[in-house]
Design a protein around this nucleic acid. Structure first.
Lengths: 238, 238
DNA sequence: TTCGACATAATTGTTGACAATCCTGGCGTC
DNA sequence: GACGCCAGGATTGTCAACAATTATGTCGAA
């Protein structure tokens, strides 16, 4: 009885399930459903996501390698809270990498890719209109993946994605904010336009501008939080 | 009975053992002790390295994430054979990253770092003189780590290291070659000199030159191997 | 009250056995 | 001889129980 279907749909490959769990946790972090410093208890997650603890363990190890999660031996995992210095460094590298990729995109861009990009951009716009943060996040990821893939260097794209992942924990501030989402939507549209016009300078400038808001919003929030933590240490709650 | 010592020396933290195993395998790959396409059987490695299969499994997952190893579900892991296109792409990114870092190193360099760098360079030179490939490899890693750390951006350094790791499977050709080792040694010396003189342009140029030989040697070898493989497929052995 | 020792609970880390999967080679059929 | 098919062996993937570690809470003494 539908053994094939169940195989591929429910069980899949083990490594697939690990990736799925990691992806789910990543989304929950980006959407602010899991906050920085929050504990990630293996059994709890295993039950909630309907997988064995073993799978959760591997997924957490993955997320640790990516930099989204911090694991302390014998104490478990927490969502990593990046300090402002790190965030600045990461964004500085992101800017360099994305600029590099943008400069390597062959212009004029092939009509095929341009259309694909336009389609993804539309999906993002729709998601923003519906205030569907999850759909917006996914479409946003696809947009940048499609955009930078056009540079032709797969490893460069992977690096760009890896660095973007690292600051996902920082995105929960902007990922749900309507203003930020609308701004991102408009910037995407402008990027597509620049690509259509073969205007490389504008494209590069847009990529750079595109990084600013989420970085600044996060740094502001985190600095406030760090200040509060310091205050708490100095004078524990009343 | 020395429980502390045994704890820290023999057992260590589990995550430490995983890292150790991954590092050992990495070295064996770089030194050509494990060749591309060679199978990595979990039980075999577990016995050889005197750890449980579980630890080997995690280490292999790590190496897969790094890109040194390829894992196919239910079939196991092999050391990855990079194709020429990938190698070119990776080296292109490496060049960009290392150039970026070199341009950000504050000049004149602090005397402390310069001395540290000089010391490591000397270690490398000694290892090359002794034709001790393993020591040379380690000193080489330390040299570049020390050099690029001076740029002040930890995440940029991590990226540079990650990209260097990716092509470690390609290094077995040059890692044991006396000529290549001597060339690398001289280039290191020149880099230190450029840093001492505050000559940034020369430093950047040297970094770029430094990448060339290993890339070219690998591409030549791999293209020969691919050609041979293709031939074998066309006409299986007599 | 505050401090430390101790028991207890919560959680992670380890292990070996078992199940699932994939490659290999032999066998029969066309 | 070529092809498909079915054991057999090698290897990876899954699991649940157990061990080890760390956090928590309680109690008694200063």
């Amino acid at each position: 009885m539908s053994s094939l279907k169940e195989r591929t749909a429910l069980k899949a490959q083990t490594t697939e399930r690990v990736r799925d769990v990691a992806a789910m946790l990543e989304e929950e972090i980006v959407l602010g459903w899991l906050l920085p410093r929050e504990r990630l208890v293996e059994e709890e997650l295993a039950e909630r996501l309907a997988v064995k603890r073993h799978v959760v363990r591997e997924a957490l190890a993955d997320l640790e390698r990516v930099g989204l999660v911090e694991r302390i031996p014998n104490r478990g995992a927490v969502v990593k809270l990046l300090d402002p210095v790190e965030v600045r460094q990461i964004y500085s590298v992101r800017e360099a990498l994305e600029t590099l990729a943008a400069q390597q995109i062959p212009l004029p861009l092939s009509g095929l890719i341009l259309e694909e990009l336009h389609a993804v951009q539309q999906q993002h716009a729709v998601a923003v209109e519906c205030a569907d943060a999850r759909a917006a996040f996914r479409a946003n990821m696809r947009f940048h993946e499609t955009l930078f893939r056009a540079c032709g260097n797969r490893h460069l794209v992977e690096l760009i994605q890896a660095m973007a992942q690292k600051v996902h924990g920082a995105r929960s501030i902007t990922a749900a904010s309507p203003e930020h989402l609308r701004l991102a939507r408009d910037q995407h549209a402008a990027m597509v336009e620049a690509l259509a016009n073969g205007d490389r300078d504008r494209l590069v400038a847009l990529c750079r501008q595109h990084l600013g808001p989420s970085r600044d919003a996060y740094i502001a929030t985190v600095e406030a939080r760090f200040a509060r933590d310091r205050q708490q240490v100095a004078a524990p709650q009343p």
